[in-house]
Design a protein around this nucleic acid. Structure first.
Length: 323
DNA sequence: CATCAGGGCCCTG
DNA sequence: CAGGGCCCTGAT
């Protein structure tokens, strides 16, 4: 294990999300499995980022309120950053955490008896992914055909073997590897990390990113119907992963066309108090209730449940997480 | 102890 | 277009 690289230079900029904005709900997603590249404590979120050729540490601090939001973003780096780079990082953070989203229409249109309680607690919460498209793709592949525990194990092995570590702001966190590292890694080396057949997927999917063939910024600008085939063309992406990508990376609030088994079980309990309701029924109900906001609305209910669970364990949910 | 499905996807027939 | 195969793990 290498020593952590110290990121000793720091610059702070003020970000102003469009109100309403909920800091905790946006930067921390208790339904997600934990990864060593980020840490959350009330009011402060830290994560690492490879961006613009730099190895960075980010600190997001909540210095506003739901109605008058402000986030103090501090960017940590090895050497001083040009002002233009800090600007680019700030713009990237605004995208990744969806800070410019206008949720007024959503709050007005979706405040029904199902979403109401969650909306009251989390009004202004964004869908967010602190990582890049490539990094999210790795996460999605580790979710496939695996339980939470196994996914966490694989993620830790990969970070330990291919990632780095940085120290900043009193924290020490892992950094993702650049895609070229997995492109170059022997498949047998990956298999030794017990990622199984995903070794092949992890290598193949890294190639276009290592070659610079994926323009993430350009993809963000595409309409969903055009974006969809681009994402499906990435090796290892099928209907389930597509849904995660469209919603979490590309913030398409209606990306709920497919319901994976785990989510199906949870929504079955949540909406109907039943063990297992047909996926089509759940999808149709979300469409009927929330229309073009259906995935964002489902996300609110889902995360609200996990926040409750982290405060006071919910037995049926605990059983589903363990599995 | 053996068998099997699991937070899918690719590839073949 | 249906279904077998793939890595590992924990449940049965």
């Amino acid at each position: 294990m290498l020593d952590a690289i110290a990121l000793t230079c720091a610059q702070t900029v003020a970000l102003h999300p469009r109100p309403p904005f909920h800091f905790a709900g946006t930067v921390h997603k208790p339904s997600h499995f934990p990864t060593p590249d980020e840490a959350y404590e009330p009011g402060i979120h830290r994560r690492t980022m490879r961006f613009a050729g730099e190895l960075l540490g980010l600190r997001l601090e909540d210095v506003g309120s739901v109605a008058r939001p402000e986030v103090a973003l501090t960017v940590f780096s090895r050497a001083p950053l040009a002002a233009a780079v800090v600007e680019r990082v700030a713009a990237e953070v605004r995208w990744r955490f969806d800070l410019d989203a206008d949720l007024a229409g959503f709050c007005a249109a979706c405040d029904d008896e199902v979403l109401g309680p969650a909306l009251a607690r989390w009004r202004g919460m964004r869908v967010s992914a602190g990582v890049s498209l490539y990094e999210f793709l790795v996460i999605v592949v580790l979710l496939q055909n695996a339980t939470v525990r196994r996914t966490v194990q694989m993620m830790e092995s990969l970070f330990r073997t291919y990632g780095g570590r940085v120290a900043f702001d009193g924290a020490e966190l892992a950094t993702f590897w650049p895609p070229a590292v997995l492109d170059a890694a022997p498949e047998e080396e990956l298999r030794a990390l017990k990622v199984g057949y995903r070794a092949r997927t992890l290598k193949r999917q890294a190639v276009p990113f290592a070659q610079g063939e994926v323009d993430e910024a350009a993809l963000r600008a595409l309409p969903t119907e055009t974006l969809r085939p681009h994402l499906l063309a990435l090796y290892g992406v099928g209907p389930a992963s597509l849904g995660y990508l469209l919603f979490e990376v590309f913030h398409r609030y209606d990306a709920l066309d497919y319901l994976p088994p785990w989510e199906r079980k949870i929504y079955s309990h949540l909406f109907y108090g039943e063990e297992l309701v047909p996926a089509e029924r759940i999808l149709a109900e979300a469409e009927r209730r929330w229309g073009r906001w259906k995935m964002l609305a489902a996300h609110y209910v889902f995360e609200d449940l996990f926040w409750q669970h982290s405060a006071q364990p919910i037995p049926w949910l605990q059983a589903l997480i363990r599995l």
